[in-house]
Design a protein around this nucleic acid. Structure first.
Lengths: 180, 180
DNA sequence: CTTACCATGTAAGGCGTTACATGATTCA
DNA sequence: TGAATCATGTAACGCCTTACATGGTAAG
């Protein structure tokens, strides 16, 4: 239904950590949330305006810089709205892998083509994994800070599923090669 | 960009197995593809019309039944289009888990709330897993049929990632409980 | 001096879901 | 006879991305 990407909650979430600009929010989405969430400027800026209109954030122009820079800050009402949403049960966890779709219809493609998709997938995962490992290493030193423990959970989730994927790639290859 | 859900390819894919109705396609999406893909009638029927207009499928009315029933069949051109798409590299594999989003902003929710989300997630996975195990058992007897080997790959993927999720749930709980 | 990055925003348009509308058939 | 399932379709509407538009600043 409505609000698939929950941009309002994502923004409130980041602002609950500290005040920042829309640009900075985008950067954090693309790093911290990158493997399980996404969002674009065309969604961030309008949502920031809506949130301000509804009193969930306040906007302040950074006069120190000549550059136009709008720093947003969460209000009490905003924090309350965030908490309200966080308490609610999760509505949707969605995995949509084109790779699996192509494998499912693999007969029309043939074994070689399927193996190629498996290799491509494997490679993409192998490229992503080091980033997550790095995140984990960095977080590891700061787990006494409560926030960091929660980030750690998501990173750990990523690392384990990715490792599972790699194991599956290996097995899938063996499985296919065991025939004919 | 365009065509996120690749309904055209999904339809061609199923029709490459055998002719069927739009209703039947929907059912198969909701079972065979269910844990990594989705699609609605509002998307299936219009796409079927487009495909027919473009000569990728043909439509035949089932006169045997009094009930209005349109059986679609893939054409050579349709099969070729499917193959063309299957050969192309995968564009997007997307995971979007609200659970992870809520965990990431977990500080505002607190440890108990986070643990609740982990339990909810665990439960939902535990509920899904038996279905996949059943699929695997059924497919296992027919792996000499090429198609079934490809279905098996996707099922195996699901089973392994789901088991990984359960392991993570356990670890996540232990991790959180090791603090404070 | 030019590339990369910081920074904000809008408009158009595609995509797909939800909700609605309709009706036959099967099974208990 | 009522519920569930089979079966097809459309319209409205929301959501989000892409592409465009603009310009400052830092670093090499």
């Amino acid at each position: 239904m409505a609000n698939e990407k929950r941009m309002d909650q994502v923004i409130l979430g980041f602002l609950s950590h500290e005040p920042m600009t829309g640009y900075e929010i985008k950067k954090r989405i693309d790093t911290s949330l990158h493997y399980f969430w996404s969002g674009s400027y065309g969604s961030i800026y309008p949502t920031l305006n809506d949130l301000e209109k509804n009193g969930l954030v306040t906007k302040a122009e950074d006069k120190a810089n000549a550059r136009k820079k709008l720093i947003y800050q969460i209000t009490d009402a905003g924090r309350e709205a965030l908490r309200e949403w966080l308490k609610m049960p999760v509505v949707k966890n969605e995995l949509r892998y084109e790779t699996l779709l192509k494998l499912f219809f693999g007969k029309e493609l043939g074994k070689e083509g399927v193996l190629q998709h498996i290799s491509d997938f494997e490679e993409s995962i192998k490229k992503e994994l080091p980033f997550l490992e790095m995140c984990k290493a960095q977080l590891n030193d700061f787990c006494d800070v409560e926030d960091h423990r929660y980030y750690m959970l998501t990173v750990q989730f990523g690392i384990e599923t990715y490792k599972g994927y790699l194991k599956w790639c290996e097995e899938a290859r063996n499985f296919l090669n065991s025939y004919e």
